[in-house]
């Protein structure tokens, strides 16, 4: 009797365990079903095309005849391609000014907004508004502002007796025109900084006030270090974003990147190589070069992290 009951118990627990693992297996199966769209998406629209484009970058392919393997020729061509090198330097200058410019504007406005300010909601939306306007419309708006004779900028400069430049057709000013336009979209960075600011404990400022630190010193010594992880996020996203700007230069220059290729940002050059010259292999090599640059810049930011990102432990 006793033995039968123990075996019965043993049997039920074993069955229970098997049933449990059956449930587990069912759960896992369903988990894969649910993840399937995302997994397929990653395979079909990210990893697959990535491998394909890496392979294409070693070929010569015009979409009419089949791809022909040419080894590293596309990559060696990059270094001799004056237009690519020009495009690269234009893009670097653009990113080097726009990314910090956007972050500085975003931080300053976020600090001003981070208080019991009347009409806070209005200001927040107003500063973010330019960021919801699409690139094509932004370019249209600014093209008009930059107009040499009837544009608002030169009208205002005229009030001060300054003869404004031909913004978009003067090689010295065309890229800067794009840069000012890019910084106009600092709203997203501002919102992220604002969210970060709201997470800083009030006590830190109170303690600093008691110690006699001025408001400005409080911003430099409390706000800036406490926001370092948000700054890191904004920096990485800013770099990725700045290397993908396309609509604005395309519309402003009718796709030419002129004057004298001074606004030929890399995506614009890539578009030209791929869709005007149909050099799909070379275009893939350019895409990989851009990707490599993004990776290197991001890696540099990561490497520099311990130097400037504040951690609780480090502070004590």
């Amino acid at each position: 009797m006793a033995t039968t009951s123990t075996t019965a118990v043993a049997r039920t627990t074993r069955q229970g365990r098997r049933k449990l693992s059956g449930l587990r297996r069912r759960e896992a199966l369903w988990c894969y079903v649910f993840m399937a769209p995302a997994v397929l998406g990653v395979l079909v629209f990210a990893i697959g095309p990535m491998i394909a484009s890496l392979w294409l970058s070693f070929t010569s392919y015009d979409m009419l005849s089949s791809p022909e393997f040419i080894g590293l020729k596309n990559y060696t061509k990059l270094f001799a391609d004056k237009l690519f090198l020009k495009s690269l330097s234009v893009t670097m200058l653009y990113a080097v000014v726009v990314v910090p410019g956007t972050m500085l504007m975003g931080l300053v406005v976020a600090i001003l907004l981070n208080a019991k300010i009347p009409a806070m909601g209005f200001f927040r939306s107003a500063y973010y508004l330019p960021s919801v306007i699409g690139g094509v419309a932004v370019a249209r708006v600014w093209a008009m502002l930059y107009n040499t004779d009837h544009g608002l900028f030169n009208i205002i400069l005229g009030w001060f007796g300054i003869d404004g430049p031909a913004w978009l057709s003067d090689e010295r000013w065309a890229l800067w025109s794009l840069i000012f336009m890019g910084i106009w979209g600092f709203g997203g960075t501002m919102l992220i900084y604002l969210a970060g600011l709201q997470g800083i404990p009030k006590e830190l400022y109170e303690a600093a006030s008691v110690d006699g630190a001025s408001k400005f010193r409080q911003q430099i010594h409390i706000t800036v270090p406490m926001l370092s992880n948000v700054t890191f996020f904004n920096l990485v996203m800013g770099i990725i974003g700045a290397l993908q700007v396309f609509a604005e230069p395309f519309v402003l220059t009718n796709g030419t990147g002129n004057p004298n290729n001074s606004t030929l940002l890399l995506p614009l050059y890539l578009y030209r190589v791929a869709f005007s010259y149909l050099e799909m292999g070379y275009a893939s090599a350019i895409a990989w070069a851009v990707f490599a640059i993004t990776l290197v810049l991001t890696a540099l930011v990561f490497r520099s992290l311990p130097l400037w990102v504040h951690t609780e432990a480090g502070e004590d």
């Binding site: 095309p49 990725i240 993908q244 791929a274």
Partner: peptide, 20 residues
């Protein structure tokens, strides 16, 4: 892996996707 694809610039996948 899915989260890492957020860092992938769309230019890298552009050409093969277009061809396909």
């Amino acid at each position: 892996v899915l989260m890492a694809t957020m860092m992938l610039p769309s230019t890298v996948t552009l050409v093969p996707t277009y061809i396909a």
